[in-house]
């Protein structure tokens, strides 16, 4: 299975340098959502990599679908902290264990 990346131009270039063929640029939110849906429907993609700042932009509903998806597995990278995981842990365990 392959890895796919959706994000801004520079990072797309970087990932294609690492051999990731399915690296797509997405600027506007609409474009982003369309691309994500396209990649999610692709049976050959095993891991979908997003940028954290893009992940924060997409609708909450899609965020939920992405975080629950196992095939493909979705991961967001970036310097911004994701609050989602932290809140989830807080809600489930009752204590803020993330840091």
């Amino acid at each position: 299975m392959e890895i796919s990346f959706i994000g801004s131009g520079d990072a797309v270039l970087g990932f294609s340098l690492a051999g990731v063929k399915k690296a797509y640029t997405a600027g506007s939110e609409e474009e982003l959502v369309n691309k994500i849906n396209e990649v999610m429907a692709d049976p050959n993609v095993g891991i979908l990599v997003l940028q954290q700042k893009d992940y924060n932009r997409i609708p909450k509903r899609l965020q939920g679908t992405l975080s629950n998806s196992v095939k493909p597995t979705v991961i967001a990278i970036g310097t911004e902290q994701s609050t989602e995981m932290r809140e989830k842990i807080k809600r489930a365990i009752g204590v803020d264990l993330w840091k």
């Binding site: 392959e2 890895i3 690492a18 051999g19 990731v20 095993g46 891991i47 095939k71 493909p72």
Partner: peptide
């Protein structure tokens, strides 16, 4: 191309 194997 980097390829991964996904199982559960």
């Amino acid at each position: 191309e980097p390829s991964v194997d996904l199982s559960s």
